[in-house]
């Protein structure tokens, strides 16, 4: 018996990489200093399927091709830097496990759409943050500042709890077909962050934010496609939040 256990332990020691699998990562590369065309490039990795796509990107950048460019900061699903289009869906690379992606087939990774592609997986986020700034994502109050914190009941806090989870990763906005197509549509993320203050009982600028979103490029361009709700890595019910803003606008008018 003891020898059998020994053999098993030896066998495991001889094959330390038995838990690794071979996965192909098909990454859409773009480098304006080399070519004006973006192209797909395949990388084969030996990797643990329980690792995340971000770990695979690290492995490629650190061990295979140092020119691969992508954003990431905290690598734990909070900072919202590494939203990218993985197997055709917007996700956070740091929250997507390789085993959940069917690694038998090449795993495609590309930059999020609808924003200017700068290099490889890096896009220009400025239009996204411009829309975010436009909805005044800060507390607006009048009167004297209280000496203590501004109190709020648990029910009032619950009203906008869902939209406080946003990490501004742009997965929702860059999955929205109206945002892809044209124009100045604010995009789901900006509306979610407006919702967070419009329904905050302590805030006094809800009317102004509703007026901004009543614009022709505001909430009325939403076609309830639900791409944003599916893309959100934080599980925010984005389309529901947009519909609540629409309802607030209508009930305010009538």
């Amino acid at each position: 018996m003891s020898s059998a256990v020994m053999d098993k332990a030896e066998a495991e020691a001889k094959q330390p990489a038995s838990h690794l699998i071979t996965a192909t990562f098909r990454i859409r590369r773009f480098n304006p200093e080399v070519s004006e065309e973006a192209s797909w490039e395949d990388f084969q990795l030996e990797i643990d399927p329980k690792e995340r796509v971000l770990d695979a990107l690290h492995q490629i950048k650190w061990e295979i091709d140092g020119t691969l460019t992508f954003r990431r900061s905290c690598a734990h699903g909070i900072c919202g830097s590494d939203a990218m289009r993985i197997n055709g869906r917007n996700r956070l690379a740091c929250k997507t496990l390789i085993k959940d992606l069917n690694p038998d087939q090449p795993i495609t990774v590309e930059a999020i759409k609808g924003l200017t592609l700068l290099k490889d997986l890096v896009v220009d986020m400025e239009p996204f943050f411009q829309a975010y700034r436009d909805v005044m994502p800060f507390l607006v109050t009048s009167g004297n500042e209280p000496t203590r914190e501004r109190l709020q009941s648990a029910e009032d806090r619950e009203r906008f709890d869902d939209t406080t989870k946003c990490i501004l990763c742009a997965a929702c906005t860059s999955s929205c077909p109206v945002f892809w197509n044209d124009g100045q549509y604010f995009g789901p993320a900006a509306i979610v962050n407006a919702h967070r203050f419009i329904f905050d009982s302590r805030d006094e600028a809800g009317e102004q934010r509703l007026e901004i979103l009543n614009d022709k490029d505001g909430v009325w361009r939403c076609r309830t496609v639900f791409n944003c709700t599916e893309a959100c890595p934080r599980g925010i019910e984005v389309t529901k939040a947009i519909q609540e803003v629409k309802r607030a606008l209508i009930t305010r008018r009538f």
């Binding site: 304006p32 609808g114 220009d124 411009q130 892809w180 100045q184 901004i212 614009d215």
Partner: peptide
């Protein structure tokens, strides 16, 4: 193309310029 002469990037038509229509401030879309 090179570091001093990069290829043009494709800008989506979202950059706000002087020709961008101003906000409407009407309830037409509503």
């Amino acid at each position: 193309y090179g570091p001093d002469n990069p290829a043009p990037v494709i800008e989506p038509p979202r950059a706000r310029t002087s020709r961008t229509p101003k906000t409407t401030r009407t309830n037409f879309e509503l």
